[in-house]
């Protein structure tokens, strides 16, 4: 809401920032989640994750690209290649990256990967 004198206007937040001559600050987070019971190779695991997220986030558009990255709005999921000494270990590390604007969704996905995936796929 922008109030100018006696006028009150409801505008889009991007327009409001422009109108007030402010500069946007982009804040982005990248974090890692270890998913212990997921099947390698990476392509299979990422497809498994894709299916799981689609089931849990029905109102969001979830896509997977040829590099096996999953995108949900501004949230990006990427499989992290394991360090050589860990290649025979179970599970996989997944990088999750999101912007502050999608903080609620990013936090929810982090939670879903950390708890939900493990219990629902065993």
């Amino acid at each position: 809401v922008i109030i100018k004198g006696n006028n009150m206007q409801l505008v889009d937040s991007n327009d409001a920032i422009h109108e007030l001559k402010l500069k946007k600050h982009e804040l982005r987070f990248t974090s890692t989640v270890h998913i212990p019971n997921i099947h390698r190779p990476t392509s299979v695991a990422m497809n498994q994750l894709h299916g799981h997220l689609k089931k849990n986030l029905r109102s969001h558009n979830i896509s997977i690209n040829s590099e096996e990255n999953i995108l949900i709005d501004s949230v990006l999921l990427k499989a992290q290649s394991p360090a050589e000494e860990k290649t025979d270990q179970e599970g996989m590390d997944v990088l999750v990256s999101w912007s502050m604007q999608d903080e609620e969704l990013g936090t929810y996905i982090m939670d879903l990967l950390r708890t939900g995936f493990q219990t629902r796929t065993t």
Binding site: K24, L27, N56, R58, D102, E104, Y108
Partner: peptide, 13 residues
């Protein structure tokens, strides 16, 4: 999961 409605925009340095 409910529709995300709160999408904070930040400004400044």
């Amino acid at each position: 999961h409910e529709e995300v409605v709160h999408r904070p925009l930040l400004c400044g340095k």
